[in-house]
């Protein structure tokens, strides 16, 4: 049997952005897993508190940008007395090395995790090169 592994808390990192936001809300860097298979890139981002309509994904000049907004109305009327983490929106960008089929991108949010599926274009799929 595999030994039980305890999870440690990951402190949220605030986004250090060159451009300033017009609204004075804080943005944090979501913890992200990225996996590449032969035909696609799969990205999983932890965005707790973000509903489906709070996510905005853009792909421009091979830069993938994700902005995820938390709904703060749930916190109205609550008075914080003990806190261990900060609450804020999420934002992160990645430069993509492979050519992505923009029309084929799909996204879903499940249990506070944003899953992005980015299929590669045909010419970006790997070709096996045989050695003579």
């Amino acid at each position: 049997m595999a030994p039980q592994k305890e999870i440690e808390v990951q402190q949220k990192k605030e986004v250090a952005s060159a451009e300033e936001a017009t609204r004075s809300a804080r943005y944090y860097v979501p913890g992200t897993d990225i996996h590449e298979s032969d035909d696609a890139l799969d990205i999983a981002m932890e965005v707790p508190g973000v509903a489906r309509d709070g996510v905005e994904v853009t792909l421009e000049k091979d830069v993938l940008k994700v902005v995820a907004q938390v709904d703060f109305s749930n916190y109205e009327g609550l008075e914080p007395i003990y806190t261990e983490y900060e609450v804020g929106h999420f934002q992160r960008s990645f430069s993509l090395s492979s050519k992505i089929d923009q029309g084929g991108i799909s996204a879903r949010v499940e249990n506070g995790v944003l899953h992005l599926h980015l299929p590669k274009t045909r010419e970006a799929s790997p070709r096996r090169i045989s050695v003579h």
Binding site: I7, G31, T32, D33, H35, E36, S37, D42, A44
Partner: peptide
């Protein structure tokens, strides 16, 4: 974490386990 079989990892920042 749901990992796809046969995929290569570019980033692994999320943690998994029991709490």
């Amino acid at each position: 974490l749901d990992l796809a079989d046969g995929a290569s990892v570019h980033r692994r920042e999320r943690r998994s386990g029991n709490f």
